[in-house]
């Protein structure tokens, strides 16, 4: 009985063919946006804008394709922990590098 419930729950969380295709279109559109924006000279903001668009694409891939949205809390926490470690590494390096040059 509990097995059946689990199955029902799984089906509720399944993303359909249509949603995946829409997400794919969105990712391609965002790629077109970055390529187009790269043609405009934004000076020192170029890197920032490119990284923001890349981060949006990454969030979409992680949430939809990698199903993190529907995953157990422990997986979300692990992902958050990994992101935190990387952020700390980046932050301390950025302090050093940006103040040096």
């Amino acid at each position: 009985m509990s097995n059946h419930n689990e199955h029902a729950e799984e089906h509720k969380h399944t993303i359909g063919y249509g949603t995946y295709t829409i997400i794919w279109f969105a990712l391609l559109a965002l790629t077109a946006v970055t390529v187009a924006v790269a043609g405009i000279n934004l000076g020192e903001y170029t890197l920032f804008v490119a990284m923001v668009v890349a981060a949006i694409k990454a969030m979409i891939v992680i949430n939809v394709f990698m199903h993190i949205k529907f995953d157990d809390l422990i997986v979300k926490w692990l992902l958050g922990f990994c992101g935190f470690i990387f952020a700390v590494m980046f932050l301390f390096l950025a302090f050093d590098v940006l103040l040096r040059y």
């Binding site: 390529v35 790269a38 043609g39 000279n41 170029t46 490119a50 990454a58 891939v61 394709f65 990698m66």
Partner: peptide, 21 residues
């Protein structure tokens, strides 16, 4: 999951190397 990660890494590699104008 592994395959999506490969895609994710490319999402960052692409603007960092190809779109520096």
């Amino acid at each position: 999951l592994y395959w999506h990660l490969v895609d994710l890494i490319w999402i960052f590699l692409f603007p960092l190397f190809y779109l520096l104008h």
